[in-house]
């Protein structure tokens, strides 16, 4: 895995590559969904790439993240393999979760990715727990929770932050304020204007950064990570960003206009970062085009491989519930009940 240190030119190119990979992956997922090729729901990260990649570039490789239902971007930012992600979206046996999780549950605990999560607000308590592990074991890892503006209204998010703050745990709480909780604008869900103001209630630092600027997110998380690793406790960061797609694919988006979207697209995170790198001579236009074409091909290949991959054997439905074997499940799966009971 290429280390993502965006203070270096290599790291900047890699960050750009990851942002492009997220966009290509999720744009492809949108196409596949509208063509009816993907089962279930997909929630796409297009527009928010700078937050995931900026944050993960400020983390160490053994740090933990928790994610949301909109988790593809976090996975790619953390270094997960798009081939295995795509296989999971198709429900194939070689997917990250062997086809059991799908888009909303991609996880790779060994890579520090504690799971996308279908429950809004369920991730922050898990991050508090991962930070508790780090604290109890005296490790120098940090846990970062990505969660949305909608989740800030959830009680368990408050509990998670309060616990981490009170216990001074090495956690970072990063709100991706993409301006809508499902279809409801953020100002109709919260009585504070900046969600970072809620940090005051926990006596921890809270601030707002431009989530369309990868360097801002990177620097913010870098400082917050340092504070956490130094034993000074959690930080609350609000990254202001925007999702270009609907809440879910198929969302008709009656709650906003094309002009609303255009204001944010005008500040597109990938385009602006690319422009800065071109200006600085870190990458040329040609190299960028080449990178983009390569990534598009990589995602095409991922789709091809995912389509060709095998579905899990139906018997797999009865695996993985527990580490231990449980007769209730193994007896069912072996069809024992078919004889109606042993003393018939």
């Amino acid at each position: 895995m290429v280390v993502l240190d965006i203070e270096t030119e290599d790291g900047q190119r890699e960050a750009l590559r990851r942002m492009l990979t997220i966009r290509a992956f999720d744009t492809k997922a949108a196409d596949l969904f509208s063509d009816g090729e993907l089962p279930g729901f997909v929630h796409l990260y297009v527009g928010e790439e700078a937050v995931g990649v900026g944050a993960c570039s400020a983390l160490e490789s053994d740090d933990y993240i928790t994610s949301t239902h909109r988790g593809h971007g976090h996975c790619i930012a953390k270094g997960l393999d798009p081939d295995l992600m795509m296989a999971e979206l198709f429900g194939k046996a070689n997917g990250y979760c062997n086809g059991k999780g799908g888009s909303m549950h991609i996880a790779d605990v060994d890579a520090g990715m504690l799971g996308a999560n279908g429950i809004v607000g369920a991730g922050p308590p898990l991050a508090t727990g991962a930070a508790l592990t780090s604290h109890l074991k005296g490790e120098d890892t940090v846990a970062l929770a990505f969660f949305g503006d909608g989740a800030v209204a959830q009680g368990q998010v408050h509990e998670a932050i309060n616990l981490a703050a009170t216990w001074n745990l090495p956690a970072v709480f990063l709100v991706e304020n993409n301006q809508y909780g499902e279809a409801t604008p953020v100002e109709k869900q919260h009585n504070v204007q900046n969600l970072s103001e809620t940090a005051e209630a926990y006596n921890i630092p809270g601030f707002t950064v431009d989530g369309m600027d990868i360097t801002a997110v990177y620097e913010a998380v870098k400082e917050a990570r340092k504070r956490a690793a130094d034993g000074e406790g959690p930080t609350f960061i609000e990254a202001e960003t925007y999702r270009y797609h609907g809440h879910f694919e198929g969302d008709q988006q009656p709650y906003r206009t094309e002009e609303d979207v255009a204001i944010w697209k005008d500040r597109d995170a990938i385009e602006s970062f690319k422009r800065r790198l071109v200006d600085a001579g870190t990458i040329t236009e040609d190299e960028f085009d080449e990178m983009k074409a390569e990534i598009d091909q990589q995602i095409e290949d991922a789709v091809g491989k995912a389509k060709d991959a095998a579905y899990p054997d139906p018997s797999e439905a009865y695996e993985d519930m527990f580490n231990a074997a449980v007769p209730e499940i193994s007896d069912f799966s072996s069809g024992m009940r078919a004889d109606g009971g042993e003393d018939r």
């Binding site: 928790t66 308590p125 898990l126 508090t128 727990g129 930070a131 780090s134 846990a143 509990e159 998670a160």
Partner: peptide, 14 residues
Amino acid sequence: AGFMGAAVGAAATG
């Protein structure tokens, strides 16, 4: 909810 969730996160991480 907070500490039950923290227990889940802690268990998943060792």
